[in-house]
Amino acid sequence: MLTTLLQNVINALQWGSFYSMIALGYCLVYGVLRLINFAHGDIFMVAAYIGFVFVGFLLKFMPGSGMYGWLVLAITLPVTMILTSMLGVFIERVAYRPLREKGAHRLYVVITALMVGLVLENGNLAIFGASSRKFPEIIDKVVFTFAGVRITNLKVLVIVTAIVIFIFLQTVVNRSKIGMAMRAISYDKFGIPLMGIPVNRVVVFTFIVGSSLAAIAGVLFGMSYPVLDPYMGMIIGWKAFIAAVVGGIGDIKGAFLGGFMLGFIEILIVSFFSSNLKDLIAFTILLIILVIKPTGFFGVAKSTKI
């Protein structure tokens, strides 16, 4: 019994790691621009495909096992991050920034983000077709067993990556100069340009970081659950976003913990009830939390001043 429970905890940690990594991307953009970047889940999906294509390309030249497997991963990750960041910045530059500069209503930018997501999903569907793809196995599986609990090296990698990313972001946002600029923009977007802070550069930086996170998550996701399909980003993305809000969006800690919480809820439901009820129960729990605590666990209510 205890073993099953611990096994589930490990699975939940891995599953939650993905939600957390995606939620952090939402959270960064939301924190700076107050924009729900609905395309983020699809950027994650595109990243997984970029990783898939690139790994396929590399495997033509080198075997995908042993040390070579790690080498493939070591080359794929940065390449995917760069390509995905370029996509993210391109979207920002072409679709969001002109609207921002024209002073369009906030919701029009959100709708544009939704549309960008659709373009990515269906563009992908048009290129790769509806059949799902199998991500090649590049790392030899090593299983550690502690007291009957099985942990693969991949799981460890995923969980550790998520934690490292969180610590990295916490440091960047709270300690670095550009992090301070990011927080400042979210606080007062009219005053900040007057202070000589290059808003657009900070925004581009935010999108680079956010997309890179999606890239890491995408590649690791492909390795962990090796079936890719064009709509995978949408569902995971929406869920991660809700998780980020439940944690308290605009706060990195909140998004991170929110992602893990959703992972735990889902894995526990699957192991104790049935996987059919997973979404129903998970969303109901999230809804109840939001109704009771509208700003999430770590979010701070903005008080209206009159």
């Binding site: 979404d279 129903l280 809804l287 939001l290 109704v291």
Partner: peptide, 29 residues
């Protein structure tokens, strides 16, 4: 409607998304 008494903007948007998912998954079951 009931959550909207206390919540608004993006937070309410999330609630509406969640409600959409809840209705769909409930029908699925």
């Amino acid at each position: 409607a009931i959550p909207s008494f206390k919540t608004r903007d993006d937070y309410l948007a999330i609630i509406t998304i969640a409600v959409n998912f809840i209705i769909i998954t409930a029908l699925n079951n």
